[in-house]
């Protein structure tokens, strides 16, 4: 594994609504290693998009530090700050909303090229835009380059969106649910193209999704981080995490997901939660936020202490970090009986 290119350190973020603070992220710590495939997964409202926006610098954290290439981004000024802003790009979820309908594809892609002085003159700009469109497999380019977004399909738009993120030669791309709006039959093609970008352009991609199977496919050689109610509850090597999930939430999640195989999915054993209600972010339970639902809840521990990410005592490989006190202690989990 290589050096971290980005690092989040005890990130908190809250939003104000009707004079109450809603804690969307709490104590989030992780590193993005250079050229790794990292995937953040979680259900709606777990804070994965907010984390992505904070990585990309679109949203400041309420507190905590963000490091890019070893430097705290809040201390960056002038050209160093510009370098960070250029180097970390984001691809949004909805290609129908993220492209300006009044600009042609060429205009959209050439604007950042001119702005950051990557090109001089129209001839050069067109050449570079052409290259970028080829890179994202929007070929034949002459059929696409002068079109408006409404003339393209959803999959094609998302490719334009990716090409736009590439205009500034980024080293990190945050892809927020970038294939969820695209039909199943073309989704994998898009994802494979993104995965190839790593090798072709040396960019690190942080992929955010709610779909664990997709996360597994994308980050097979990399890592997955699982989020729940604003906290990272488990992060580790994908193959390890999928085969032996450690955190109770990850276990429950993996057991609940239907699979595209009738016999297998019907034979699957589902772990029952103690409660199906997801707590509101404004009324988070004490201790571990998963404890009111956790099948392996330990009274007097889980409802008191807030678990932080750590390596479980009985794990010698150091491949996974888990935020669960009983798991960290290396205790055998026992189903809670009230």
């Amino acid at each position: 594994m290589s050096e971290p290119i980005m690092q989040l350190e005890s990130i908190y973020r809250s939003f104000k609504k009707d004079r109450t603070d809603i804690p969307v992220l709490q104590d989030v710590n992780f590193a993005v290693n250079n050229l790794e495939f990292l995937c953040l997964v979680g259900e709606s409202g777990c804070g994965k998009t907010t984390t992505g926006k904070i990585l990309a610098g679109l949203l400041p954290p309420s507190s905590g530090k963000i490091y890019f290439e070893g430097q705290d981004i809040t201390t960056l000024r002038g050209s160093a700050r510009n370098h960070y802003r250029r180097s970390v790009q984001i691809i949004h979820q909805d290609p129908y909303a993220s492209l300006n309908p009044t600009h042609t594809i060429y205009e959209m892609l050439s604007f950042p090229l001119f702005h950051h002085k990557f090109v001089r003159g129209k001839h050069q700009a067109r050449e570079r835009v052409w290259e970028l469109l080829e890179l994202v497999d929007l070929t034949p380019v002459e059929d696409v380059i002068d079109k408006y977004p409404y003339q393209l399909s959803g999959g094609q738009r998302q490719r334009v969106s990716i090409a736009r993120a590439l205009t500034t030669n980024p080293s990190v791309i945050v892809a927020d649910e970038s294939v969820s709006m695209v039909d199943v039959s073309i989704r994998i093609g898009l994802l494979q193209m993104m995965m190839n970008l790593r090798d072709e352009l040396d960019v690190t991609i942080v992929f955010i999704t709610h779909d664990l199977a997709l996360a597994k496919y994308f980050a097979w050689e990399g890592r997955i981080g699982v989020m729940y109610l604003g906290r990272l509850v488990e992060i580790g090597k994908t193959q390890e995490l999928i085969a032996t999930p450690r955190h109770p939430y990850t276990k429950v999640l993996l057991s609940a997901i239907p699979e595209p195989d009738p016999e297998k999915t019907r034979a699957k054993r589902h772990i029952q939660l103690r409660s199906e209600d997801i707590p509101r972010l404004t009324e988070l339970p004490d201790g571990c936020t998963f404890h009111p639902r956790c099948p392996w809840y330990v009274e007097g521990v889980c409802d008191v202490d807030v678990p932080r990410l750590g390596i479980p005592a009985n794990d010698s490989n150091n491949t996974v970090e888990v935020a669960c006190i009983p798991v960290q202690r290396g205790e055998e989990l026992r189903l809670y009986e009230s």
């Binding site: 094609q156 199943v184 193959q239 993996l254």
Partner: peptide
């Protein structure tokens, strides 16, 4: 369609739209 078993998926998408 990606699966959740413990093996690496080999996936291909359908060309065109």
């Amino acid at each position: 369609v990606p699966k959740l078993d413990h093996e690496q998926d080999v996936l291909t998408s359908i060309k065109g739209t």
